[in-house]
Amino acid sequence: MDWNTIFVTTVKASIGLETVVYALAAIGVNIQFGYAGLLNFGQAAFLGVAAYGLAVIVSTFGLSFWLGIAVGLVATVVLAFLLGIPTLRLRADYLAIVTIAAAEIVRLVFRSVAFKDVFGGSDGRQNFSGDFYAMNPYAPGSYGIGPIKFDERTTWVLTVGWILIALSCVLVYLLMKSPWGRVLKAIREDEDAVRSLGKNVFSYKMQALVLGGVIGCLGGFIFGLGQASIQPDLFGTEFTFYAYTIVILGGAARVFSPVVGAAIFWVLLVFVGNTLSEAVGAGVFGSAITVTQVGSVRFILVGLGLMLLLIFRPQGIFGDKREIALDAR
């Protein structure tokens, strides 16, 4: 077994593209679910409309990169209002139902035959990241420490991605320490009490939904640019559920939990996956597990690990045990 490869790929996964994308998506979910108590099960759609907004403007219509970014941002905000206006006055469950359905609608529209000319059907869109890589300040070569190296393109994407994560964390930190964040947390606890104290609950919930969506949509841009292509099926419901897993793994309503949660989630997946394939290759399991089954088995093992975490540390990594104890009362 090649432990060196396993080690290198695992360390790379901790700061790699997937970690960045899922961290941004999870920061958004953390604002909505962790702080404001909104069950947005359509986070994938927010990343999807942003990535497609950029890709369609650049590759379908041949317009500029920055216009694409602007269109992606506007599309995200519009989606948030479309989902929020009819549901945020109702009980929390309705937002969950509407968002999960809306996310599927968005994905199916992107992959539909009728709009193949615009969205590119199930093949998605390519050739929209040229302007982004033209801005790359890194000279061709590889960057990193020791054996852990990325090429100049990946280094550029990761640099931008981690700057966005840092800015988002600062934003969340400032907001949640402020009276604005206090209103949000209070809404999570009891909407009616907050109303009785003269706060416009609907407005705050909408602000949280939009903010979470916009931070998530940055992940959509990074996803598309990092792969230099997008496909509709990247934005399925499982994407949203991974983001939720990450938030709960890190501990809901903590500033850094989505970031650390995303890193741990991907380190676990990559480490378990690579170790398994190396072990299968070396014949450790005999005929019990074949190479094609490794993908499924790693999710079983990671799922098991997450279940154990929730049993023994229900508050997540950064959570406060006393808060969980309050729920039992």
Binding site: W180, V183, A186, A193, L211
Partner: peptide, 26 residues
């Protein structure tokens, strides 16, 4: 509001708080 401290509960009641505006909160 269970997961807020007693003091935070009290502060929430005050009206016309400048920090409750999204941009000023920053």
């Amino acid at each position: 509001l269970s997961k807020l401290t007693v003091m935070e509960n009290m502060r929430l009641g005050a009206q016309n708080q400048r920090g409750e505006n999204f941009f000023r909160a920053l």
